[in-house]
Design a protein around this nucleic acid. Sequence first.
DNA 1: CGTCATCTTGAGGAGTGTCAATAACTGTGG
DNA 2: CCACAGTTATTGACACTCCTCAAGATGACG
Lengths: 266, 266
Amino acid sequence: MSQKASLKPSESESDFIRGIPLFSGLSQEEKDSLLKDGRVTSYQRRQTIFRQGDSLQNLYIVCSGIVQIYRSTPEGREVTLDILIGGDMTCTREIFELSGVHTANAAAVNGATIMSFPKVWLLDAARKNSVFALNLLSAISRRARMTEVDAEHQATMSAPQLVACFLQVLCATYNFNPRGFDLPISKSLIASRLGMELETFSRALPVLKKYGITVRGKTVVFHDFPSLEEHVCGHCSVMDTCSARKMVRQKRDEVRQLSRAEFQLV
Amino acid sequence: MSQKASLKPSESESDFIRGIPLFSGLSQEEKDSLLKDGRVTSYQRRQTIFRQGDSLQNLYIVCSGIVQIYRSTPEGREVTLDILIGGDMTCTREIFELSGVHTANAAAVNGATIMSFPKVWLLDAARKNSVFALNLLSAISRRARMTEVDAEHQATMSAPQLVACFLQVLCATYNFNPRGFDLPISKSLIASRLGMELETFSRALPVLKKYGITVRGKTVVFHDFPSLEEHVCGHCSVMDTCSARKMVRQKRDEVRQLSRAEFQLV
DNA sequence: CGTCATCTTGAGGAGTGTCAATAACTGTGG
DNA sequence: CCACAGTTATTGACACTCCTCAAGATGACG
């Protein structure tokens, strides 16, 4: 593996990072002062960013592309813990655990650019800036919450339900049109993220038609929301506070109004 | 349910709380100033401490007894998320999520005394005291880590392996003698904590003999550590850093030396 | 010694993993 | 534009684990 060139961030990259929740509530000067220690690295498709067992050096924030966080068991099984997109960060938890080694692997899915900060930078910033510390506490807490919800889903939902739930989350995070969008990642990656085999995922897709979702190739169409409520979201204990569910339904209504408007134009 | 009396903490309760990791690195004055806002409440066997959906008011730290944190799904299934003992705290994550409601239920198992602090107390302390903030970050991070490891276990281990792993953790947290100890909680509670049915748990016990653990009634005996390594710990991706595994084996060696010493006395 | 709660054991079935064969897609070069 | 190889996904058959329902057994306690 060739040595990676770590560059100073470009203006657009800095701007993007300045906007993430971790820096919210900070003055422009504070942000600039913090960001000056960041370095940007580009990774090719499938390239490893760090490995489990490696010594933990940096906080990573994804600028663009998709990053897979996964763990390998002694048996050789591979479990995808998380899929990061632009604005997501990783290793905050590990840094504050003070354990010193990575507990998972990270690799670029189809190439990615990533900003990294030394771990002492993070510890210092948390110590010196209480607003930053509270942002961090909030970010770590939210992430922990999501992990917990995920675990509950795994424990209580069937494979088709898990897939349906994930497709909604996907639609919401990418702000896709629920009436039709293409999967931005491979089915194998989704299956692995959901802790199931690709075959099980594949077999879940036909079942989804009953739940109000049609999948043909890479194309996903939500065609029956009441059915989705009945078969999937209605079985979830966090339904009321699920932002993905809310966003997808909001988007559906927007699209509906839009197509009505178009119709009137014709 | 009768109104609970919330009392000022006794000297021994304050002393106990002063010693937990959350307050480490703080001066005696800082600790005293923080602790003056704490109130102690006693709960009877099976009594509810808070319910999911309730408005989130306090940080809770267990002084004594055992507390079950659990969630109910719309189907009526109950999943135990955590079992807390003295020194453990709960709701830190929820408070920093700023969501305002409890995401789980909490109930005393066989009675418990609990110290509570208003949530603004926690936010203020984190804002004003950077040592406290870092302790918090560390505590939340560690907890998140444990949740993640738990999820991985559920995904990769069989029911008997999960039980074996949990019995080791139990032995370590209570500092029991691995050569023989009694379960401090019911088997149903353990099963629920491991996300399995009581029947599955029950059926796992005979299997454990092959793994080096004998369970008769409430009594647990670890009798074959190499077998345990081979069948359980060896399949775990966090084996090297597992403190429970380390503690149980250390305790075993202590006991071995002790019984040898006793033998020489006779 | 009976009563209640807790736990064990049995039989059957649903769901997912595994192995294996086939199909669809992607990109490359003729 | 098509043929080809490599990757990615689908489908089938079967085994295994765990859940469910049901009936007993054991234990704690008055």
